[in-house]
Design a protein around this nucleic acid. Structure first.
Lengths: 339, 339
DNA sequence: GTGAAAGCGCTAACAG
DNA sequence: CTGTTAGCGCTTTCAC
């Protein structure tokens, strides 16, 4: 493997010039730059990122910490972040906390501090002040996706508003008995997402003078199966079967559609269903939903990081950036049929 | 941030001793080791991986290259690899080739060669001899998952056998008109996986004296939707509606179940369905399948890499290791009802 | 068992 | 515009 010396020798210049020519820092006459470039190419020279990092203090690598990986939403965020980073010449080092246990501690106290990453993107993770503090103390910018984090620039959708919008869609169609399948607030790690979505749902109902009925709420676990089970309960109630269901995620909404079918109910005739996410399966199931764009979220997180890493002019940047969302109406929602 | 000097000073030893004490290389009296350890702890010292890598030539980081991320199978493999790597003290740097275009070239010619990774795991990627050669020339071990790769230790299930087993299951139940939903051989990148599975299917049929009927084969694209569409075609044939469908992936099999339902057919009474993967949704749909264990695959890839990285004794290691699979019979397969 | 010192490969002043 | 020269922070012979 050729080093910078070989290139310098071949090009007939000093290593400093090679470094300048290749990195673009400092002036080099285009003639010599050309020579350096061809020399590097013929030798197949590639800089050693370690040596470079050691000398500059920058690694061109960012750590992404995430609670799960094998879930559409998360892997999509990563996908967006990864390609954005790649295009900026950065690497992405992945830390999946799924395993639970000591993993989280070891990642934060060890892996992330080894000067291997320039910055950290935390996805749907409520970092502790200690975790944030340590990272910031080492001068590593953090950007959070999924909720507000004190002292950290974050990106998130307004869960209350999103839920309200979904509920309003149902309301505007004429539904009054609207059930909600949400997450278990007891086990919420993700910035009270389940609670916020439930609040949005209730606000929308109240604005129409409807008081939320606790019997019209069931807990799912953000999976198709969880949604299926909750929907069975909801749709099986003899007295007050809802005419519509708002699920806090598309996966639960799909479970609801499947449950309805299994009970012989037709969607949307007998029951309307709406979710949140615009999951890859949602179009297939004709599910109305509020799209949030996970890949875009990953990409935006990277852009913000780049701003922090390369502060350009007076670019303060808001501490918290709201993420776009959009109501997508497909076939699973319609006016209720009067029975 | 404390450096090794501070620790040395606090412990009253030389930096060399600190290095030895912390890394476990070389002898240090347990008394001084103890002092070093506490000094390091009180200072909150963490080695700089760059400096360490530069000095040793090892990075404790492996690159994982993958064609997609937001697909259950792939993210599960990564999950398995990630946690195995973490437990060995290694980082995982992710390269997702999904974007297509120049990404692949830039990853192989640039990112992977910067001395940032010690080794590479290639998942479902048919590396070119050039790609393999460059990596090996830099002394970076590679392990491939998903198919054989000349000159590389690989891990993969025997697709022919897996498909044969699935088909035999159907056959043994008494089915004769067995359709197959496979991948498009024209666009196959993944080691002829679609072809191999089709071959296994045909071999099983032929062993029973049944000659494969091209009209009983349809192409899906490994998604639920693709399976759904293909199944509709298959199950809609007026003259020879199959009594069973073997789909080359669980996602397509699930699409088949949904298509059957939409056509008013009952699974398994009217049609039996089997897939391959044991996807996270398969249990929910009661799908019979051949499980392959993606997380385990990721984990095994890591173990092999560790062997290559830390050659212990006379451990040659087979060039190609078959992966385990297992028939899981659920409710989607049964004897055909004579009509 | 421990210390001194020479790098690992590159970058960033500082001169010129 | 380009060369010289210190390091960046750690590991690892080689002595003691």
């Amino acid at each position: 493997m050729p080093g910078i010396n070989e290139v310098a020798e071949l090009a007939g210049v000093s290593t400093a010039t090679v470094s300048r020519a290749l990195s673009g820092n400092g002036h080099v006459s285009s003639a010599t730059r050309q020579r350096v470039l061809t020399a590097a190419k013929t030798l197949g020279y590639v800089v050693s990122s370690n040596a470079s990092s050691l000398a500059t203090g920058r690694t061109k690598n960012v750590g992404v910490v995430i609670p799960f990986l094998s879930r559409w939403f998360f892997s999509s965020v990563i996908e967006g972040a990864e390609s954005a980073l790649l295009s900026h010449g950065y690497d992405l080092t992945l830390y999946n906390l799924g395993g639970g246990g000591d993993e989280r501690r070891s990642v934060f106290e060890h892996f992330l501090l080894r000067k291997r990453v320039d910055a950290v993107i935390a996805i749907s993770l409520e970092l502790t002040p200690g975790e944030v503090g340590r990272l910031l103390a080492m001068n590593k910018p953090i950007v959070g996706v999924g909720g507000p984090l004190p002292g950290v620039r974050t990106l998130s959708i307004d869960d209350v508003e999103v839920a309200r919008l979904a509920t309003e869609h149902l309301l505007s169609l004429g539904h009054r008995a609207i059930a909600h399948i949400g997450g278990d607030p007891a086990s919420e790690t993700d910035f009270h997402l389940p609670t916020n979505r439930r609040v949005g749902y209730e606000l929308a109902l109240q604005a129409e003078g409807i008081s939320p009925d606790p019997e019209l709420f069931h807990v799912g676990d953000f999976t198709i199966e969880g949604g299926y089970r909750a929907a069975k309960q909801l749709l099986g109630q003899p007295r007050k079967r809802p005419t519509a269901v708002f699920a806090a995620s598309d996966e639960m909404a799909i479970g609801t559609i499947l449950a309805a079918r299994d009970m012989g109910l037709t969607v949307p005739r007998d029951v309307s269903v709406i979710g949140i996410d615009d999951h890859e399966l949602s179009a297939f199931f004709g599910l109305s939903t509020i799209a949030q764009f996970p890949a875009l979220q990953g990409q935006m997180a990277v852009e913000i990081l780049m701003e922090e890493l390369h502060p350009s002019a007076r670019h303060a940047g808001a501490p918290h950036i709201p993420l776009p969302y959009e109501l997508i109406v497909r076939g699973s929602t319609a006016r209720p049929v009067s029975r």
